[in-house]
Design a protein around this nucleic acid. Structure first.
Lengths: 154, 154
DNA sequence: CCTCACCTTTACGTTCACGTCAATATTCTG
DNA sequence: CAGAATATTGACGTGAACGTAAAGGTGAGG
């Protein structure tokens, strides 16, 4: 697979994906989106996409000065937004995305990456526990209130 | 159950709890903590606690000018911090805590509260899905990297 | 009584993640 | 090809959640 990069289920996160199944169209079959296309699809503003680019989270190509987003960029954005939704900072996300990039890393580098990933997983599991507890409490609250509503005077 | 307030498992969130089991000590058996006690226990700064008070999230009593936190306050803080850890804003948290307070609310008010709670639960479940997906991906990433590390040249 | 440690309020500073003009290209469409 | 729609780069503003001095009160111990 490509240069040995690890990829995300469903959609490649690295830069170039080959033509879709049924390989017609030699060079430019890659679907490309404008900034408003993408911003509408993911319910963010163009400003947000430019900001993410400034922060090094995403790297659209250009036609002239206009940004063009590939499918990989679109997948990357999805990843970013999901990361954001679970509480990652943009710096966190950039680091994580960089980890996915198959740079020719030396072994100690890779091991450090691995360690950091495992730490992250631990933290996320703790967060999951907090989330479950919060959900449980809110549900308990809801059913108690509901019961209260149905009893005394209808 | 005091005045009919709903409370959180484990520790009462409303203001006054009666003396612990074994009812000795008529009036002041309530354990009270100073601001640094609490901040150390929960690994936040005193500044944070004062800020939360300014924002109406917690209401310690005073001895003179010095803040005194009860066990209920401590439980409240725990709730706040867990809410924060799952991504609630302080305003969110204040609203949720207010919901727990058994104010003499009218029926439509209560129903609105219920609806909001259910919305929150829905959002939290979505967040849970995102969290699970992120964890799964990170774990996949880790095992792939690990396998890569063990194969070619030891 | 005096110091020391800890408490207080007031108030301005900071970081993050964008929002909001403004002024200017550029690109699509009739 | 003209006009409308959309894009771009600055640059400054904003809200949330605290941090960080500055300038004091207060009480227990030596």
């Amino acid at each position: 697979m490509g240069t040995g990069g690890f990829n995300i289920p469903g959609e490649a996160l690295d830069s170039a994906g080959p033509a879709p199944a049924g390989g017609i169209d030699p060079a430019e079959s890659e679907a490309r989106f404008t900034i408003t296309d993408l911003s509408r699809e993911y319910a963010v503003t163009p400003r947000t996409l430019r900001f993410y680019e400034d922060e090094g989270l995403i790297h659209p190509t250009r036609r002239g000065t206009t940004r063009l987003y590939s499918r990989a960029d679109r997948a990357r954005l999805a990843w970013i937004l999901r990361g954001r939704s679970v509480g990652f900072s943009l710096a966190d996300i950039r680091d994580l995305l960089d980890m996915y990039a198959p740079g020719p890393a030396r072994r100690p580098q890779i091991e450090a990456t691995l360690a950091k990933s495992r730490e992250r997983i631990t933290a996320l599991n703790e967060q999951r526990a907090a989330l479950d507890a919060t959900i449980a409490e809110l549900e308990q609250f809801c059913s108690t209130v509901e019961a209260q509503l149905l009893r005394p005077n209808p």
